[in-house]
Every structure is written in structure tokens, then in C-alpha cells.
Design a protein around this nucleic acid. Structure first.
Lengths: 343, 343
DNA sequence: TTGTACGCGTTATCAT
DNA sequence: ATGATAACGCGTACAA
């Protein structure tokens, strides 16, 4: 007897029943053999395995989900795709993190990118709708209230980066305050006499915290903290804020720029103006997520352990999905200095 | 009567039956009201709407999928995460493309990143398993035989980039031959007397085609095409290949580097060696996917219309999912020159 | 160890 | 327009 493979015509969906019949056992036995394989005789097991191979059987995920209440997938939520998110190593870092965290599992990744102009609440509805077993939410903006919308959800959720409204949600974060301090310290130890900073958006925890850390360290060293301008985590924004900064404070000989992308912009405008980096002005960046490596000279920067954060978040999420209680406090990872030639 | 919201306890899964009961109609009517709303009286519609809102009802996707045979999601397959894929604007471009193509739809995106060390065929099995309604496959390497594995599948699939084994699959591509020619032409018109090229991997269609285009144009202009070295689409590889190239051909005054990342490496080593760009040697890049914008001077390059390709692929896929036949031939988009200061 | 029977939540068919 | 009722494909108590 020959097996006829139907060409492009829709395959006649081989079901568990077919497998059972072909193996000469009942559906239950076939099911057990296919899953754990517990409580099934070697012969039955073999018969089922053969039938599966023969028929090219693949369990229907929907049916399985319907009864097990497990979808086998988790969501990565990337809200508000502003310039920073979609154009940068940031996104790649996120994906590497969850990808790392998912190795060994059979879970798949559903990527939720909030498209602008879509009805608010759509993402939250999707997440609560039972499409996924859990979610990790990255870098949310202030305006979207995903944290509130998810606060009372049954769905396991882990945030990457401290949510603005601390509603008891679990999250993993990097110690951006410490990072800002590291940057300041480097410039101080380097002997800079007058140090300024270009911050990130004051609406984002990361921007705020890095500034706070810088101020702390500067103050501790008895330095002024008045040379501050604000950027938006983009190259152009960094360039603009740097021009502002140096024009307002011509005596600067060291700048902490709160992201590598902005630092890139800073280096460009400084170079254009004939300012030598680091001889005239030392520049510290932040992130080390693929940009700092590519400047000349290589940017001295602070590593923002994004991949590790996301991997940790994923690991935690997996535990929660498996029924483990959410960890008591947040996990906080430490940034560290990455040597370069600009500070 | 007050609605009691259960706190963290797992919500008692409100089903369509509950809605129907609360609305005083049958399940069928409730279902119709919730979906198209066809053949349902205004009163019934209102009653159902109210009940839905009241109960916070959300249809069970698994149950729905089970009967409709639609999952409401498509997969983006990113095989073989080598250096190029995960660390670069390439991935961001892919995601922007599908994201663009998905606007207006209720489809979600499942990201399939082949993790190395996983059983081969896993991805193909997943795709054939009915988890998604369709798939777009990007930038596959030679070694994974996803194209073969998917050739006879019932699942709608669109490739981004020409598959190596042309098995009648549908794909959308960029005209890399034309792109290579554009790069060559620019260098020729600029007055370069001796032109070389750093290619991409000779195992990838893009690498091969860009070289072919360059050779075509050079030959047409009566120039030699012997100054060729091979890179791997990475910064380091580009730097290495460039050194090789200029050492073997000291008379070069123009180089076409087949990717911006490699061009970045090229500019770095050239600068280190005291070679001025573009005065001594003009440099043409390729891609314009986020790297060229950030070099100083800005790289002159050829735009590889990745986002448009993926968006087109997604659009085609959506049609196919909706039952439309696969287009006859491949869609091919055209690259174009992007001005910069290096050539 | 194996099989029987039921339930998961929805949509689709077909009378009414 | 509405309402029974039958699938959809699978896991799993429970009984044997």
C-alpha cells in the first residue's frame, strides 16, 4: 500500500484519532504516548510512534490549548515605537535577551509592537485575552498605562525597567543611579575640572536615574551640578543638547552623555567645532549596546546590562508561568564601565 | 446588584454562555452579535454588547481557532542568527516592515529566531503545525533547508530575498545586481581611475548579486574587475578585507564595499593608515539601514529597500492567507543611491 | 496499562 | 432573526 501525499491541496489534517486507529490503540493511549509517555507499554509506544511518523501527525495546538489552558507562547511587549526603540540595538538587545531566556523551552515569542494610532488598550486586551501564557513588557513610556491595565490581571507579567507607577508589579531593572555615578566618577578621576551632562528624557526612569547618579557623585566630590541639558536618546537630540550645553558653559572639559547614540551626536558636533575628544573635552557615553564599539575613537561608556535584564526577566516569567510566586522585590542588575578612548 | 471583581485569584473565565445568559439570548445570537453583527436585531445587539462590557468578556482564542482554523497570527522567521542579523539595523528593518504591513489587521506577529543548537526542522515543524496562518522568511542561509522543507507545505509563505534553491516558492527581492551597478557607476562618474570592491559572503545571494552588478558596470566601462576581496558583512570583516584589498592594489582610488557595516570598518582602517576619504580613496557603501547616517563624513551608499520589501512580502502574504493565489513571479524592488560625503 | 466518556469555548448548519 | 445541535481536536478523570 502506498502513501499518497496530497500536493498543494489542503492536507486532510491527520488527527489523533487517525494515529490511534493506525496504531491499533485508543485515543487516550495515543495521547499519552505522544505526551509524557507515562503509563504506556513499550509496544503501544512504538506503535504510536510509528503511526505518528507514518502519518506525519502534528498535534493541533488550538485544541491542545483549549484543554490545557497553555498556549506555549509568551509575549514581548514593546510599547510606543519611538526613534529609540525600533532603530536601535536596543531592540536587538531585547530580542537576544528573551531568545537567550527561552532556550531549552518550547515556548515561542509573540512580539507586540504598539503601532501608533491603534486603539489604546488593545495590547492589554490581547494580553488578558488568553493568547499567551505570560508577558514581559519593555521600556514603556509614561503615556501608556499598560502597568495599570495589567496590575490586576491574572497573567504573569514581568517588566523590564522600573514602571513609573509602582503598582506592586514585578520588574527587573538596571541600577541607573549607580551607572550615572560611575560615569561621573570616571570623569572626575580623569581630572576633569568642569563637568556637565546631557540627560535623557526626564519622562523616563532611565533618564532620571542616570542624572540622579551623576548629581550624587558630583555633589559628593564637591562639584557643581548646574551644567545640564536634556536630550531625547537620539543622535540628533544629543547633538543639539550638546551644542546648547557647551555654549552655555564654555569652560566644560568633561561631559556625561546619557546614551551612546546621543554621545555619537555629541562627538560629531564637537569635532565639527574643532573640539578634540578627549583632549579638550572628555566624553562619557552610556549603553554599550552596539554603538560605542563603532565610533572612532571608541566611546568610553557604561554598560547597560540589557540582555541580562531581559534574560533574567524571562527566567522569572517562566517560573511564574509554572506556578511559582512572583519574587518579593525587583531584581536589579549593575552596570559597569567599558573602556574606550573618549574619557 | 454589585459586580464583585475577583482580585488576584484566577478570573473565573467568563464564557460566551455567560454573556448569552446575561443578555437573555442564545449562544448563537451572542456569537453573531459579537462577530460580524449580521442578522441580529438591534435590541439583541445592544443586550449582548452590554453583557460583554459588564462581564468583561473576551473570546477564547483557542476555541475560536479550533473551529475557524485561523490563528490570527503570522510568523516572521529569522534563521541563523549570525552576527549580521541580531546586532544590526537589519532586524529592525525587518520588524518595521512587517509591522507596517500589519497595520490595520488584527494579526499578531510571532517571531521565530532559529536558536543555534536546536534540532533542525524545528522551525519547519512549527510552521506546518498550524500555529500560524502564514509566514514570511527572511535572509536564510545556505545550510538551513527551510525552503525545501516548506516547498510542499499548505502554509502560505513568502520569502524575503531570493531563496538559493529556486523551488517555485514566492519571494520578494531587491535588485542587488542593479544596486551593485549603481555603486560602480557612482565611482566611475566621480572620476575614479582604479576601482576595487569588498564583497559580501559568496554564499549569500545578496553578496553574489552586488558583485555581479559591479562587474557588469565596470566591464561596460572597459575597466578591470580584478581588485576584489571578500568580507562577511561585519565591521571587522570589512576592515580586514579592505586592508587586504589596498595592500594588493596600492593604486586604488575607489572602493565599493558591499555593506555599510563593512564600509565602516573600511573607513576606520583607511583613516588609521592616513588615507583620506574621499580625497585619496572614495568609498561607496550599501544598505542605508541606520549605519550610513551615523558615520562622519556620512557614507555615500545605496539604499537597500528592506522595509519596503518586507512590507510588500507581508501584503502578499495577507492576500494569500485570504485565499488569493500566490503571485506569478517574484516582486523585485529597486535600490537607489543615497548621497553622502565619501564618494 | 488501557479504554470510555466528558468537557474545553466557539463557530456553523439548519430548522424554526 | 433566533435557537438547538453538531462539530472542531485534544486531554484526562474514571472505570475496567
Amino acid at each position: 500500500m502506498t502513501l499518497t501525499r496530497l500536493g498543494s491541496g489542503s492536507m486532510p489534517t491527520v488527527t489523533l484519532d487517525d494515529v490511534a486507529r493506525a496504531a491499533g490503540v485508543s485515543r487516550s493511549t495515543a495521547s499519552r504516548a505522544i505526551n509524557g509517555g507515562r503509563k504506556v507499554s513499550p509496544e503501544a509506544q512504538r506503535a504510536v510512534d510509528d503511526a505518528v511518523a507514518m502519518l506525519g501527525y502534528s498535534p493541533n495546538p488550538a485544541a491542545r490549548t483549549l484543554v490545557t489552558r497553555r498556549t506555549g507562547s509568551i509575549a514581548l511587549v514593546v510599547p510606543e515605537p519611538d526613534a529609540r526603540i525600533l532603530s536601535d540595538p536596543f531592540l536587538a538587545g531585547l530580542l537576544r535577551g528573551v531568545s537567550d531566556g527561552l532556550t531549552g523551552t518550547d515556548l515561542q515569542l509573540v512580539l507586540l509592537i504598539s503601532r501608533q494610532g491603534e486603539r489604546p488598550g488593545r495590547t492589554a486586551r490581547y494580553l488578558r485575552g488568553g493568547h499567551v501564557d505570560g508577558a514581559i513588557v519593555a521600556s514603556h513610556h509614561e503615556q501608556d498605562h499598560l502597568d495599570d491595565q495589567l496590575a490586576d490581571a491574572a497573567l504573569p507579567v514581568v517588566f523590564v525597567g522600573r514602571p513609573l507607577s509602582d503598582s506592586g508589579l514585578h520588574y527587573v531593572d538596571a541600577d541607573n543611579v549607580a551607572g550615572g555615578a560611575i560615569a561621573a566618577r570616571r570623569l572626575l578621576e580623569r581630572g576633569c575640572r568642569r563637568i556637565g551632562t546631557v540627560t535623557g528624557p526626564m519622562t523616563m526612569p532611565g533618564g532620571l536615574d542616570r542624572l540622579a547618579g551623576w548629581e550624587q557623585e558630583m555633589t559628593r566630590a564637591g562639584r557643581a551640578t548646574d551644567a545640564v541639558t536634556h536630550g531625547d536618546f537620539t543622535v540628533e537630540g544629543g547633538a543639539r543638547a550638546t551644542v546648547e550645553l557647551v555654549e552655555a558653559h564654555p569652560d566644560l572639559d568633561g561631559i556625561f552623555v546619557a546614551s551612546d547614540l546621543m554621545a555619537l551626536g555629541a562627538m560629531q558636533v564637537l569635532t565639527e567645532r574643532g573640539v578634540r575628544v578627549p583632549e579638550d573635552i572628555a566624553v562619557m557615553g552610556y549603553d554599550n549596546l552596539g554603538v560605542a564599539e563603532r565610533t572612532t575613537p571608541r566611546l568610553t561608556t557604561v554598560y547597560n546590562p540589557l540582555v541580562e535584564m531581559v534574560a533574567a526577566a524571562t527566567a522569572t516569567l517562566l517560573d511564574m508561568v509554572d506556578g511559582a510566586p512572583a519574587p518579593a522585590g525587583p531584581q536589579v542588575l549593575s552596570p559597569y564601565l567599558v573602556e574606550g578612548g573618549t574619557a
